[in-house]
Amino acid sequence: MPLRDHFNQLKAKAEELNRKHNLLPIGQNSAHQTYVPQGHQGYPGQQPQYQGQWQPQWQPQGPQPNHYDRPPAAPPVPLHSRPSQSGASPEYQQYPQVYWRMNPQAAVSVDFEQKQGHGDPYGWGNDELENYTSHSENSFYTADGKLIVRAISRPGHPDPEARFTSARLVTRQTLAQTRGCLTAWLTLPRAEGIWPAFWMLPREPFEWPHEGEVDIAESWNGEIDNHSCLHWGSYVREDLQKHLVRKTPLPDATHRPVRFDFVWNCENIPYRNDGKSAGGGRLMWCIDGRSIMKNLMPAGTRPIQDWCVLLNVAMGGTVCKGKTPPEGIYDMVVHGLQMSDGMEGGWGRFEHEWQNCPDGIVTY
């Protein structure tokens, strides 16, 4: 067979496979993919009021995740690993049961409270630039089931409230259980003046910082290091030991879904007379299936089952050292978000990982 005919046959087979599996056409990639809300063209409900020279200048660098890069579905739980009829959880459950996950078929507001406003009066502080909105240009689901948390920098906009907009989403669902695992698959934006975060706070109302804060994924100013943190004190010299951190280099976090797990086991932890934790529950942070930090839940924090999950992209402020993000669009892509009753590999794996995982350290 002539070489050209053989090549054409191979190309035809490849195109047939692409059509069958709904992949990108041959020779194309999604390096400059722009996510658009379902049924959304431009600004919600109207034409953009700003008609200046601004056009989004930022584009993702390198290959971006395609629509088939979904989080893997959890395999069925084997019979021998399922809870007993008495309701007791097995100690070595290999495949945990998911008890909550975000629902891309519903509006964002169903699973998340979309915080609005900006600045210190709202308790978000740090002299940040962003105005958090509930607009569909700042948070939306894509047609293929991803949640987009979008920060938009347009410093030339005539309306000061529209120059830096973003989304701050808080789950309506709490962790709810005394032990379990929170998992997210995230592709994160990176640039000067940009601060994406996947973190947790107690359900409102709460007393910050004494009732605690957990940071699972965050970086700022284009740094490649991810910060895993546990906070329960103010930023004063006396409270330095109440800020524990581990840094993990993630140079490719803008190009692929990174898996973040936060695992907690706070069973049989006593409460104080004021309802706060007496301390001692075990917390573990994992990235791409590798445990990278552990710590005990401090005394005086809120019981873990009362905590909520936050997703946001902040801009500027003291944490970003006053840097302003360049004009453009910055997307945190949430490929999946769920809560399970344990980590993959079961609580036996958790015990093993606990023995070898480093504690957080004071870095401030």
Rank of each mutant, 00 (worst) to 15 (best):
Y330H: 02
Q93W: 00
N29S: 14
A217I: 06
R172W: 06
T301D: 02
G360R: 15
A278P: 13
N66G: 10
E128H: 04
H40W: 10
G180W: 04
Y43N: 06
P303Y: 07
D144V: 07
E223F: 11
P71A: 09
S277L: 02
F206Y: 14
K11M: 10
G39F: 08
M293W: 05
V149E: 03
A176W: 05
L24Q: 14
H32R: 11
A217K: 01
G280I: 10
G346H: 03
N295T: 11
T324F: 13
I361V: 13
F7M: 09
V98W: 04
G275M: 09
A299P: 04
S277E: 07
S166Y: 10
H227I: 02
Q28M: 14
G300D: 01
W285D: 00
I148P: 00
A184Q: 12
M200A: 15
M284V: 06
W354Q: 08
H255W: 02
W285F: 05
P270K: 14
V170I: 10
M200F: 05
K323R: 10
T363A: 14
G328H: 10
L23E: 08
L17E: 13
L310N: 10
P76S: 07
M284Y: 03
E16P: 00
L23N: 12
L175P: 02
I292Q: 00
L296H: 05
T301N: 04
Q33E: 09
W220N: 03
N131Q: 07
R259Q: 14
G360W: 09
G222H: 03
E238D: 11
M332E: 06
A191Y: 08
A12T: 14
V36Q: 11
A253T: 03
V36A: 04
A73W: 05
E344M: 02
W307L: 02
P72A: 13
N295M: 00
V245S: 10
A73Y: 00
Q173N: 11
D69K: 03
L244V: 00
N22K: 15
P25L: 08
K13D: 07
E130A: 14
G348L: 07
E137W: 05
Y68N: 11
C229W: 01
Y122E: 07
G345W: 00
V313K: 00
N356L: 15
A106L: 11
P83K: 15
V263E: 01
Q41V: 07
P298A: 08
G300K: 09
S109G: 05
W199C: 07
M343W: 03
E16K: 15
I269H: 02
S81P: 04
A197G: 09
V319N: 12
P298Q: 03
Y50D: 13
V77Y: 00
T187Q: 12
I361M: 11
W124F: 05
L240E: 09
E128L: 13
C308M: 08
D127Q: 15
N29P: 01
E161R: 15
E351I: 05
D288N: 15
P90T: 11
V362S: 13
R150I: 01
V98L: 08
G117H: 03
V362F: 04
N226G: 10
E137A: 08
V77Q: 09
I152Q: 03
Q64F: 08
F7Y: 13
G62K: 13
K115I: 01
D261F: 02
D159I: 05
P56F: 12
N268E: 07
P90K: 12
S228V: 05
